[in-house]
Amino acid sequence: MFTGIVEEMGTVVSLEEREDMTLWDGTLGKGTELTVKADVALQGAYLGCSICVSGVCLTATALADDTFKVGLAPETLSKTYFKSLKPGELVNLERASVIGGRNSGHNVQGHVDGTGEIIEKRTDKDSLWIKVRTSPEIIRYIVPKGFVAIDGTSLTVVDVNREENWFTFMLIEYTQKKIIVPGKPVGSLVNIEADVLGKYSENAVAAFLPRLEALEAKIASLEQKLASKN
């Protein structure tokens, strides 16, 4: 679990396809490996620990003095823009949160729902206003003044337009210097994770609705029977 409070911006060293990834049974397979240069994210890091890379919870598979490696599963590559990462590109980094520690953001799982496209940027005094278009499958979970994680950054949603599938958020001056989003031009992609509470709520309602519909049907049937007797 993460908080969405980015600790540092790391630098992509390499993104490569490897043919010599050792599988569970000792055989070799093909896989994608990302190497990132970092500082804060390596403090207390150990093999197998989780590091949030631009919103994606990834497992550290190798550690060096100033770099770490992670494997990217096909699901990760399909849900994020990571397949287009290039050496020298910046990524947001956050270590896993400590149980019982403060959370200045919100509960971020690091499970990206998909990507969005930056379609507009403008300044408002010292704040940066950004509009992002995404898919209907993601916009359904985004609500005004709710939480959203953009490239792993916990942000508050400002406006939502479900007809055109866009939402907006604002970055204060301090945050602009600490994360990668302000440096992305219009047309760039961002990783999006909607607040998990919305997904749980939808699941709960979906489980309850059939029972409610059945009850309403039964009440309607009883009302018809009473009406016929009168």
Results as ranks from 00 to 15, higher is better:
residue 188 S to Q: 07
residue 206 A to E: 14
residue 198 G to Y: 01
residue 121 K to R: 10
residue 173 E to R: 15
residue 224 Q to V: 15
residue 2 F to C: 02
residue 227 A to M: 14
residue 183 G to C: 11
residue 38 A to Y: 01
residue 155 L to E: 03
residue 196 V to W: 08
residue 178 K to D: 08
residue 215 L to K: 13
residue 226 L to Q: 10
residue 5 I to S: 05
residue 52 C to I: 04
residue 93 L to C: 09
residue 226 L to I: 15
residue 51 I to Q: 00
residue 168 T to S: 04
residue 41 A to K: 00
residue 187 G to K: 03
residue 203 N to K: 13
residue 124 D to N: 15
residue 163 E to C: 09
residue 42 L to K: 01
residue 65 D to W: 11
residue 150 I to Q: 02
residue 200 Y to P: 06
residue 65 D to L: 13
residue 109 Q to N: 11
residue 127 S to T: 06
residue 94 E to Q: 03
residue 170 M to Y: 13
residue 78 S to P: 05
residue 202 E to K: 10
residue 66 D to T: 08
residue 7 E to P: 03
residue 229 K to T: 12
residue 53 V to P: 01
residue 185 P to F: 10
residue 28 L to G: 04
residue 90 L to C: 11
residue 213 E to A: 12
residue 30 K to N: 13
residue 120 E to H: 15
residue 136 P to E: 06
residue 17 E to M: 13
residue 171 L to V: 05
residue 203 N to T: 08
residue 24 W to R: 14
residue 61 T to L: 05
residue 227 A to L: 13
residue 222 L to R: 08
residue 220 A to V: 12
residue 189 L to R: 13
residue 181 V to A: 03
residue 26 G to D: 04
residue 214 A to G: 04
residue 207 A to G: 15
residue 195 D to Q: 05
residue 122 R to P: 00
residue 84 S to E: 14
residue 30 K to I: 14
residue 165 N to A: 01
residue 28 L to D: 08
residue 145 K to H: 07
residue 198 G to N: 09
residue 175 T to M: 08
residue 98 V to M: 11
residue 133 R to A: 05
residue 131 K to A: 12
residue 34 L to C: 09
residue 164 E to C: 06
residue 224 Q to A: 15
residue 204 A to D: 10
residue 203 N to F: 12
residue 129 W to S: 03
residue 164 E to I: 11
residue 84 S to L: 10
residue 206 A to Q: 15
residue 43 Q to R: 10
residue 220 A to I: 10
residue 202 E to Q: 09
residue 168 T to M: 02
residue 71 G to E: 09
residue 32 T to E: 10
residue 102 R to L: 14
residue 225 K to H: 10
residue 100 G to I: 02
residue 36 V to E: 02
residue 9 M to P: 04
residue 196 V to S: 11
residue 109 Q to A: 13
residue 220 A to Q: 13
residue 93 L to G: 02
residue 37 K to I: 06
residue 94 E to W: 01
residue 72 L to K: 03
residue 33 E to A: 13
residue 126 D to C: 11
residue 57 C to Y: 00
residue 105 G to P: 00
residue 122 R to D: 09
residue 13 V to L: 12
residue 179 I to C: 03
residue 23 L to Y: 11
residue 131 K to H: 08
residue 204 A to N: 12
residue 83 K to E: 09
residue 72 L to F: 04
residue 59 T to H: 05
residue 129 W to D: 06
residue 28 L to Y: 12
residue 95 R to Y: 11
